[in-house]
Design a protein around this nucleic acid. Structure first.
Lengths: 204, 204
DNA sequence: CTGTGTGAAGGCTTTCACAGCC
DNA sequence: GGCTGTGAAAGCCTTCACACAG
């Protein structure tokens, strides 16, 4: 049950299963087949994934929806209580702040940072926007470990370095550059142009 | 050189290499080691990836930056000339339209669609926003194959079905649901809450 | 001697096949 | 009988080791 033993892809799918389960909360029991189909995977894959966490199902019957939901919430739960900051309140950054998709899922974006804290776009946000110079102190004081990076590519590496120096351990990077970080830092890149290019390539 | 033989992950990395190369355009020659480091991968991986497209390097010397850039542009080029539509001009959708990261990379978002085409947020966009009822005709007439889906989760599957029915072949999906599509349709999910949850899980 | 190209080995993930339990 | 849990097999991707070209 050591975290390190669980493949990253499995953890990713657990998040998907969890969301599918939430939509099934009026049901008692679900088979691996039904849940897997809803989640877009094969049933054997789902069973293998869930088996990392012990015997969760009942043979001949399936999985208890409430019990499985609770177990996944427990496994992923700590993850969803992290405070998050967003750095770079441009078009994309401020849209993500307004988007609400994070808060709905249990993440609290506690503050945003931008070179120009009074930036027009930030006016009607409910989340405070601070100047970049306040960034290190904020991270240290609030023990922030997770950051969303939506600054221009040209400054992304520099800002990234500052984040890490202050104690950030994981970064969701929207800047279209390859960030170079120490090995223990977790980075997930979301490069929209590359995603489009990749999709487009596979249109036959 | 059949497309089908090239792993999806390799194609993804080609896009990364291409962008790194663009930043190196004042240099003549680059070694796999240097390029790989800049792209955040191992040099053997880069050489394997490039070898899918024939002998691109010179032994003992490295790769010609202009020649390699041209070759990758050729391989990925067709991908970047696709017209794209965006469906759902809410916070996230309209931010993506304004973001500009697509156009800069050669993608043209030719139109957006929303239930309310006159929606406040869409006012100052340079891209036309049409009502959803115009969607099927537009896709058919302009032979659109690629769509960005930024509608609420509750209607995503329905909208997705309509897109496919009209001829869309690939979807970049931001709605937090699992889309069920025919096998030949390519879907890439970008679920921001799941990405955050996943990152957060791996903070030790 | 340097740095690419590549068959072989290794590692990781998915799928299969079926044993085991309700 | 039905459906989960799981060792074994298969498949895929990455890394190694080194042959080979400049």
């Amino acid at each position: 049950m050591n975290k390190a033993e669980i493949p990253r892809k499995t953890v990713y799918r657990l998040s998907v299963y969890y969301r599918v389960l939430l939509a099934l909360k009026n049901i008692d029991t679900v088979s691996s087949e039904a849940l897997a189909t809803a989640a877009g995977v094969k049933s054997t894959q789902l069973r293998k994934d869930l088996a990392y966490f012990g015997q969760l199902g009942t043979r001949g019957l399936g999985y208890s929806v409430p019990a499985l939901t609770a177990r996944l919430s427990e496994v992923l739960g700590a993850a969803r209580l992290q405070p998050v900051i967003l750095v770079g309140a441009g078009h994309l950054g401020s849209a993500l702040l307004r988007y609400g998709g994070f808060a709905k899922e249990g993440f609290e974006v506690v503050a945003a940072f931008d070179l120009d804290a009074s930036r027009e776009r930030a006016r009607d946000l409910s989340i405070p926007v601070y100047s970049m110079e306040n960034l290190p102190a904020f991270i240290t004081e609030k023990k922030i470990k997770l950051a969303i990076l939506t600054v221009p590519g040209a400054v992304a590496q520099e800002v990234c370095n500052n984040l890490i120096k202050s104690g950030v351990q994981a970064i969701l990077n929207f800047a279209p550059v390859v960030l170079h970080t120490p090995e223990q830092i977790v980075v997930k890149n979301v490069d929209l142009a590359i995603e489009l290019e990749n999709l487009s390539y596979f249109i036959r």
